[in-house]
Design a protein around this nucleic acid. Sequence first.
DNA 1: GCCAACGTTGGC
DNA 2: GCCAACGTTGGC
Length: 159
Amino acid sequence: MKTQQNHTPKYWLMKSEPDVFGIDHLKKDKTTWWEGVRNYLARNYMMNEMHVGDQILFYHSNAKPSGIAGLAVVSHNAEPDQLQFNKKSASFEKRATREKPVWFCVQVAFQHKFKNFISLEEIKQDPQCSNMLVIRKGQRLSIQPVSEKDFLYLKKKGL
DNA sequence: GCCAACGTTGGC
DNA sequence: GCCAACGTTGGC
C-alpha cells in the first residue's frame, strides 16, 4: 500500500498594508482569513500549495518604511473567500456562486513581531538575500514563495 | 504625487 | 487570439 506523502513545510512572504492590516492588527486578532486577494497566481498558491504549518514572513507594503515586520503561520487550509459573496464588498465577485466559488484564502495566525524590523532597503543591500523575489523591480505579487535558507536567515535576523 | 511594471478587459 | 487601453500595485 502506498503511504501518503507528508507535506514538507513551505515558506512564504505575504504583503499587507500596515494602515489597513499590519502585524499589530494580527497580533491583536490572533488569526485572520487572508481575504481580498484577487490575483490568480496568489490564489493558486493559497488554494494548492499552502498548508497548515507553512511559515510566513509578514511584509508591510506601501509603508514608511516597507519591510518585514514579523512572522505568521498558516493556521487553516484554503476555504472560499467570503468577500466574493458580499455585494457591498469591493472584493465582490459576480461570477462566484456558493457551489462554485472563484476565490479562496487561507487563515493565518500571529507568531512574532520582529524586534528588528527588516526594511526592504536592508534586504536589497544584503547579498545573502539576492535571490528573493521581493527585491525585484516591478514584483507586485502579494504572496511569494521564499526559500528555506532565506526564511531562516531573515527569521534569525528579525527576532 | 509620480510612474514603472504588470494584470485584466474588451473590441476586433 | 491579439493587443491597446485601462486599472492597480507599490516603491520612491
